[in-house]
Design a protein around this nucleic acid. Structure first.
Lengths: 221, 221
DNA sequence: TAGATTGTTAATCGATTAACAATC
DNA sequence: TAGATTGTTAATCGATTAACAATC
């Protein structure tokens, strides 16, 4: 039953990975309610999944349960955090401090989920120099120099689509290993060995629109 | 080959629905580049999919192509818009005008994707009365009255988790048919016949974290 | 020990891909 | 007509569910 985060992983499917944060949220709520142990059956019931799926998912990473007992809520919560790498502290930069960028920077508790926001950049003179959290928005012209000194591992893209590919290409060359992409641009298959996680807000709203069309047979995700 | 939006739909899988906005984005780009027709093969190549999948997906909704020719870019772009219901104008309200709510309200072009933002509500005295786009933030205490007059169909939830269930329950009673949910709360299986589309920002960032762990065998979504 | 619940293998289901006849 | 490419059926692949032996 390995629990450390460095051993040869047998490639976990995206479906499984995407469920992990949700498991973690439910486990946190359970813990907050003072519940210390839970069976796959009970958790499945609360999450509207099958017990089988939960056990299959967790066993991709190791045997975290105990026969006849179930899972320890707090242990499992922390294990999932380790699997996701939330115990890391990855230097991260934000590109674009407009409405959305600013909100993202302020809204999220980066440090508690493995990221450390160390720089914010914009190209607009109106925005450069402003304070967001503990950071001052810098001129994107100084980005290259900044990266060479501080080696950010991840970059958050909240810039206009037109600027995305140039900037992203540059960042990859400067050693950035992953993008959290809020632009309309489809970066996903552009690079090898670079992680891209996209949040396409309007795509998401469009699927809501679809489901509003056929209210009645709606029953989703 | 039906193209109108009202006929008996044989339940389309979520996987297909979720791909539609992406097809639409690519088609728009093609159109912008002056390309008027495209084969499933060529589109598949550009989108990193199989031609087979594209044809299967589109044929869930009707025969939009022409044998020996392919698809008309502009027609298909518009058809997908109709399928998604982007030609509608659904009265929509925003709950919570903090960092994120404000940014969402300002960032998105609601009208071009089927929504009409008609009200913004908050409970904080600091925020009530502020101007966001063409709207003035109203006191959430006036929400019920507002709904009885204006009958919003969709609600965007950008409020603290603690307030979500009470507010959402009330809105459902008042006739809201769908939620765009940005809270940590898992609304999904709470109601019948209510559409819920969630954007869990930290969940998304966590999956990026996971993929940064194993840079190398990263190749995703 | 008996009861409970896991870890894991086998069966099922659904989604993706391949193949090909229909047709522009 | 010949060539191209769709719509659609069949085959494959992967993900979910069921079943059950292992074990706490």
């Amino acid at each position: 039953m390995p629990s450390s985060s460095t051993y040869k992983k047998p490639v976990i499917s995206t479906s499984v990975i995407k469920r992990l944060p949700r498991y973690r949220r439910f486990l946190r709520n359970l813990r907050a309610d003072g519940i210390t142990r839970i069976s796959s059956k009970e958790l499945a019931h609360r999450m509207n999944l099958t017990a089988s799926q939960i056990r299959q998912d967790l066993n991709c990473f190791g045997g975290f349960g105990l026969q006849g007992y179930g899972y320890n809520v707090d242990d499992l919560y922390r294990e999932i955090g380790v699997i996701l790498g939330l115990d890391k502290c990855r230097p991260t930069i934000l590109l674009g401090a407009g409405n959305l960028g600013k909100a993202i920077a302020r809204q999220l508790d980066f440090n508690s989920i493995g990221f450390d926001l160390i720089g914010i950049f914009d190209k607009s003179a109106d925005i450069i120099g402003r304070e967001i959290r503990d950071l001052t928005v810098a001129d994107v012209a100084t980005l290259k120099e900044f990266c060479k000194t501080h080696h950010p591992e991840a970059a958050i893209l909240c810039i206009p689509s037109s600027q995305v590919t140039d900037l992203a290409d540059m960042l990859v060359e400067l050693g950035v290993k992953g993008f959290w992409n809020f632009t309309h641009c489809d970066l996903v298959h552009r690079y090898d060995n670079i992680a891209v996680e996209s949040v396409h807000l309007s795509d998401s709203l469009m699927t809501l629109s679809y489901h509003l069309n056929d209210s009645g047979n709606t029953k989703k995700k």
